[in-house]
């Protein structure tokens, strides 16, 4: 009896706490949205006011029309191409390597694998400057390759997928082998379908990681039309420092598509996050 009462009180307490935090989480977004519909003159003369007195769309039209100096939509597409390309490359590279480390026998396997794992200790800041030199030497500065290919160096994903593969019983492989399947067929027909959950996690991490990367793209991209959205918005901040409503419109143009995507795929996002804990924990 007492148990259910504390339970109900706990529920209310939890709800109260979440509501307070929820307000903190949502207010900046809402104020950003409403401000993007104000005129700059109103913003400057009125100061803080949550809703615009006059709702205007001009910030959006002005911003999207200026495709030479602030090609926000172009930046968005660039980000999308880069993030998709990175994710695909990482999925291919990682699943192939993990398969070899988990299922195939070759000389120096363990030394190689643990050697690779050990390099994870070195933080990426140490190779930042020479990596830039290598990218420019290859002529990859201001191209999508500059972001896609270096992202596939990661060892942690291989570790994650290998762990997952090791838990798949070897008898599956043997059965296929008796049927005359080659290594490649085992990989493609037997293993790959079974490791989809963990690949989903890898895909999600890679995509968001690439989408949110800031330092590296601001170093390798100097061409306005080639850069992704994150360094692009940095330029926008400088350009519209004196015009906050337009600046907000720019940030929201960058956010909204992610928002829509998230509301459609929320279930998958959260499920795979939870799954990744199972793998890591």
């Amino acid at each position: 009896m007492q148990n259910t009462r504390t339970n109900r009180a706990g529920k209310w307490l939890a709800f109260l706490f979440l509501t307070i935090m929820g307000v903190i989480w949502i207010v900046p977004l809402l104020y950003g949205i409403t401000s993007s519909f104000k005129t700059n003159i109103e913003m400057q003369s009125v100061g803080f006011r949550f809703l615009p007195i006059n709702w205007v769309l001009s910030n959006y039209t002005k911003l999207l029309a200026n495709t030479t100096n602030t090609p926000v939509f172009r930046w968005f597409l660039n980000s999308l191409v880069i993030a998709c390309g990175t994710t695909l490359l990482v999925l291919c590279v990682v699943s192939l390597s993990a398969f070899a480390y988990s299922r195939l026998k070759f000389r120096g396997k363990n030394i190689l694998f643990y050697g690779l794992l050990a390099t994870m200790m070195f933080p990426p800041v140490m190779n930042l400057i020479p990596l830039y030199k290598i990218i420019t030497t290859l002529g990859w500065a201001n191209t999508d390759w500059a972001m896609i290919v270096p992202a596939a160096t990661g060892v942690f994903n291989i570790f994650l997928v290998r762990q997952f593969m090791d838990n798949i019983p070897i008898s599956y492989d043997e059965a296929a082998r008796i049927d005359g399947a080659s290594d490649w067929q085992i990989f493609f027909r037997v293993i790959l379908p079974l490791i989809k959950p963990v690949l989903f996690v890898v895909a999600l991490f890679t995509f968001t990681g690439s989408w949110n990367d800031f330092l590296w793209p601001s170093i390798v991209f100097s061409d306005l039309n080639k850069m992704p959205i994150t360094p692009g918005l940095k330029l926008l901040q400088g350009m519209y420092a004196a015009n906050i409503p337009t600046l907000m419109a720019g940030a929201l143009v960058a956010i909204v598509p992610t928002l829509i995507l998230y509301f459609f795929a929320q279930k998958y996002f959260l499920q795979s996050m939870a799954l990744s804990v199972g793998v890591k924990g």
């Binding site: 900046p28 977004l29 950003g32 980000s79 989408w211 949110n212 800031f214 959205i229 994150t230 360094p231 692009g232 918005l233 940095k234 926008l236 901040q237 600046l247 907000m248 720019g250 940030a251 929201l252 960058a254 956010i255 992610t258």
Partner: peptide, 9 residues
Amino acid sequence: FSISAVVIV
């Protein structure tokens, strides 16, 4: 969200 959008807001 990307950090630059977050900071702007």
